[in-house]
Amino acid sequence: MTTPEKTGLRERLRHVLEADDGMSTVEYAIGTIAAAAFGAVLYTVVTGDNIVDALTGIIDRALKTTV
């Protein structure tokens, strides 16, 4: 037979083990950090000389194409 103290302790323990309060905050923080890092890498790639030269070449060829 279980006593009320054991039942209450069991319920509290189950709540602590199953509760995921705060998980969304951590997930949002990790997602924000990942997005900022991706943005920094993308900015570095796009502003590099090779990309600017390649885009300029594509635009020049497109403008000089005869239809």
Results as ranks from 00 to 15, higher is better:
His15Glu: 11
Ala29Ile: 13
Val67Gln: 02
Leu55Lys: 01
Val45Pro: 05
Arg61Cys: 06
Met1Ser: 13
Ala40Val: 15
Ala54Cys: 03
Leu9Cys: 07
Met1Arg: 07
Ala34Lys: 07
Glu5Arg: 11
Thr3Cys: 13
Asp21Pro: 00
Asp60Pro: 03
Ile33Pro: 03
Asp60Cys: 04
Tyr43Lys: 12
Ile59Thr: 08
Gly57Tyr: 01
Asp53Ser: 13
Val46Met: 10
Ala34Gln: 05
Val26Cys: 10
His15Met: 07
Ser24Trp: 02
Gly31Ala: 04
Leu9Ile: 07
Tyr28Val: 10
Asn50Glu: 15
Gly57Ser: 11
Thr56Glu: 08
Asp53Asn: 13
Ala37Cys: 11
Asp60Phe: 05
Ala34Thr: 08
Met23Gln: 01
Ala34Asp: 07
Leu63Ser: 13
Ala35Ile: 12
Ile30Asp: 02
Leu17Ile: 05
Asn50Ile: 15
Gly8Tyr: 07
Arg61Trp: 07
Ile59Gln: 02
Lys6Leu: 12
Gly48Arg: 05
Ala36Lys: 09
Ala19Val: 02
Thr66Pro: 03
Leu42Trp: 02
Ile33His: 04
Pro4Arg: 04
Val46Thr: 03
Leu9Pro: 01
Val52Thr: 10
Arg10Cys: 08
Thr2Ser: 09
Leu13Asn: 00
Leu9Asp: 02
Asp20Val: 11
Leu55Val: 14
Leu13Gln: 01
Glu11Gln: 08
Thr44Pro: 01
Ile58Leu: 09
Met1Ile: 14
Thr2Asp: 07
Arg10Trp: 06
Gly48Ala: 14
Ile59Arg: 02
Val41Arg: 00
Tyr28Asp: 06
Gly39Ser: 05
Ile58Val: 10
Arg12Lys: 13
Met1Phe: 14
Ala29Trp: 11
Thr44Asn: 10
Ala36Gly: 13
Val46Asn: 00
Ile58Phe: 06
Thr32Lys: 08
Asp49Glu: 14
Gly22Met: 03
Arg10Val: 08
Ser24Asp: 03
Met1Asp: 13
Ala34Gly: 03
Leu63Glu: 14
Thr65Glu: 05
Thr47Asp: 09
Phe38Ile: 10
His15Gln: 08
Thr2Pro: 06
Thr47Ile: 10
Val41His: 00
Ile33Leu: 14
Thr32Tyr: 11
Ala40Ser: 12
Arg61Lys: 14
Thr66Gly: 04
Leu13Phe: 05
Thr65Trp: 06
Asp49Ile: 11
Thr44Ser: 12
